[in-house]
Simulated assay, not measured.
Amino acid sequence: MEQYFTAQPTAQHQERTFSFNLRGHLLQLTTDNGVFSKQTVDFGTRTLISAIDFTNLPAGNLLDLGCGYGPIGLTLAKEQPQRQIMMADVNERALELARNNAIENRITNVQIQISDIYQQLQQQTYAAIYTNPPIRAGKAVVSAMITQAKNHLVLEGQLWLVVQKKQGAPTYKKIMQQTFENVQVIKRDKGYYVLKSVKTNN
């Protein structure tokens, strides 16, 4: 079965558009077959978005890693209009939707590009990285998203991640602690954990 982290989905197109309110911003979102959570903004993503706190965030751009059709990155762009938001995904169909959703919602402070984890992002650094990681891609992929994040954050930069307890939250919390020497549970809701680490040293 074709997964949403496939680079070039072959599923027959079946676009659908819906409105969704995220942090008080009513977004028009178009999805399609072959992308994650095509029916609606999934609960994990909503939980992460609602938990985000911009307090103590250093200067710099933000990264939505594994952006899909864009709900996290587009919300960040609305909330932080003075910052540039990078949105990256391996799924080309999802990226095309994200670009169109940015246009539809008149959001211009975004840059949307293909990247397999951080590979195509070169050595860019960010004030924060936000991700609802592709759990079905496997532990190695999700672990790399965490461990490599440190190299892509400025000092005092933040990594935010949402994951279900039954899909490995305790394991990924431990990897964040090992990588950053700190981790906080920011929010728990219906088995979902929003985890945050801060880069305190190089």
Rank of each mutant, 00 (worst) to 15 (best):
1 M>G: 12
3 Q>K: 14
5 F>N: 10
6 T>E: 15
12 Q>Y: 07
14 Q>W: 10
22 L>P: 02
24 G>R: 04
25 H>C: 05
26 L>I: 11
30 T>P: 03
35 V>E: 07
37 S>E: 11
39 Q>L: 12
40 T>L: 13
41 V>G: 04
41 V>N: 04
42 D>I: 05
45 T>D: 06
47 T>Q: 11
53 D>V: 00
60 G>W: 09
63 L>Q: 06
66 G>E: 04
66 G>A: 05
72 I>V: 14
73 G>R: 02
77 A>I: 02
78 K>W: 11
78 K>H: 13
82 Q>M: 09
87 M>Q: 10
88 A>W: 07
96 E>A: 15
96 E>H: 10
104 E>H: 07
104 E>W: 08
112 I>M: 09
114 I>D: 08
116 D>K: 08
118 Y>P: 01
123 Q>P: 01
126 Y>I: 01
128 A>H: 06
128 A>D: 04
130 Y>H: 12
132 N>T: 04
133 P>E: 07
136 R>I: 07
140 A>R: 11
146 I>W: 08
147 T>I: 12
148 Q>R: 12
158 Q>T: 01
165 K>P: 11
166 K>E: 13
170 P>M: 05
170 P>E: 08
170 P>Y: 10
174 K>I: 03
176 M>R: 04
178 Q>T: 07
181 E>L: 15
185 V>K: 10
190 K>D: 06
191 G>C: 05
201 N>E: 15
